[in-house]
Amino acid sequence: MIGDRGNSSSDWADSSDDHGGTSDDRGHSNADRDRSGSGREHANENRRNAIEDGGADVGSTVGASIFAWVRDRLETAAALVVVGCFTVAFGPPGALAGITTAIVWYALGVPYALAVGHVLLVVLVAGDFGSGIDVAIVITGFVTLCVVGVGAARASFPEVFVALCAVIGSGAIAWGVSDRSLPIAAAVTLLSLFGASYVLHRYELVALELVPDSNHETTETTPSETEL
């Protein structure tokens, strides 16, 4: 089932949007478009046209096609990695948890899969099915899913790097602070993530020149005041 799904996810939109989930406010998110076959075909056609026009540097070689095919299925592979990690770490109960996580990923997307996977991991650990190393194996699978989910379709280095840094950084903060107090660890983790998000938001405003320049406004108003 998952393999079939992967065959049709080679559009320009991120394949991680293909899992359904909630559409955005405007009603035309990538997820909405991807659910419709015509929209997907249209996007594929556009991409093909762009490549034929020389708009893409991937080219039309066989190697590039294979690369694109593999790249588009990375997220599916990452979900399978999660299933494998669960199975290796916890045996048959872990396999069940892994398959459940994969189903949630397919239906609702990466964030929900990560949430459900962690809850199942807690259940397995609480049921005394595994040890600390088993938890680390499963978390490695989650990190893989997260990183691939961010940059699956484009697989560009900076995006993967940022996601990896965010995971490692926030995980380290959470781990380090949780030895002292779990509430503090939770607060620090959330604040770190909010801070990173806000910095990106401000960076975008500056990059797009959407921040009004106060000096410029002053310069414009000065002559008129002088004239008056």
Binding site: H118, V135, G169, I173, A174
Partner: peptide, 17 residues
């Protein structure tokens, strides 16, 4: 359960990415 905090970290990292 510190493991659930790991979920917060990964989901947050996903969104930041």
């Amino acid at each position: 359960q510190p493991i659930l905090l790991g979920a917060t970290a990964t989901i947050g990292a996903f969104l930041v990415g």
